[in-house]
Amino acid sequence: MPDMTTPETVATSVAAWGLLPAVALVVAVALALGLVFAALDRVVVAGGDANAMAGPSRTVVRWLVKQRRTTLAPDRLLWRVATGAVPVLAVLSMAVVPIAGRTLWSTSADLVWFNAMEALLWAAVWLVGWGPNAVHALVGGYRFLAQGLAYELPLMFALITAGLAAGSLRTTDVVAAQADLWFVVTMPVAFVVFLASAAAFAFWGPFAAPAGADIAGGVVSELSGVERLLVEAGRAIFLGASAAMGATLFLGGGSGPWLPDALWHLLKTVLLMGLMVVAGRRVPVLRPDRYVEAAWVVLVPVTLLQALVVAVLVLSGMYA
């Protein structure tokens, strides 16, 4: 097993550049990744029309100027808190993703932090559905809870598998452990499950049932104006952050020849986003009552098996 990096030797971006610049950088990168993801998504949905690239920016402006509407007897406090929390949590999940080799803050439990932000996002999205006191939004919220419950365990196992091979829950250690071999080679199942769970947590693509057209937009159906923008931005940022995290955990982070680390990481992230968009938009939405069973009965055992295989490889000295 590789040596554990002690907290002193890891320079977080806060330590390197100061608090404000580091936070600003993370927020800027998160927003940029979210915008790129939204643009890619729009292009694929529009059937490869490159003009659609500007779609998200136009939508942002439209939502900013649009009048807010409200519903009868909403739970305003919880609704407001939740819509604000969605983008904040998405950005916070970027805090443990290395940017140019440094994370905003480095703890001995980075992977659990990423997972905890997802769990909080889960509660926030449910509240977004609960707040407006409307049928379709509430149904969407409940769908999201069931979906999150079904995907939380496989996602945990996928994250833990990467941590297991690296012998650390710190993302910078996970990157360092992939110096010889990218983790995607030995843990392809965990890689795929991680990306699928990320899509499920952002209720996007084949997992968009909580915001499905069959319930008139579900959790986002009663959102308008700035609130709509906040939630949609949170979804896009979270998908972008997940792609960056996926590149970190399974594709060796910033490692690569010739180019600087940051550029390699960005390239891998954008590539992963493209992969997600193309694969995710090819298929129709999976109906929750069908795939929840598959998630519990198939994905949980499969990810556990993946963890077992990696554990055996660790014992045999594969990642040493």
Partner: peptide, 16 residues
């Protein structure tokens, strides 16, 4: 039908 089934890409092609 494709809109309700949640397949926006196919629905767009059908409309086109």
């Amino acid at each position: 039908f494709l809109v309700v089934a949640g397949w926006p890409v196919a629905a767009r092609r059908a409309r086109a």
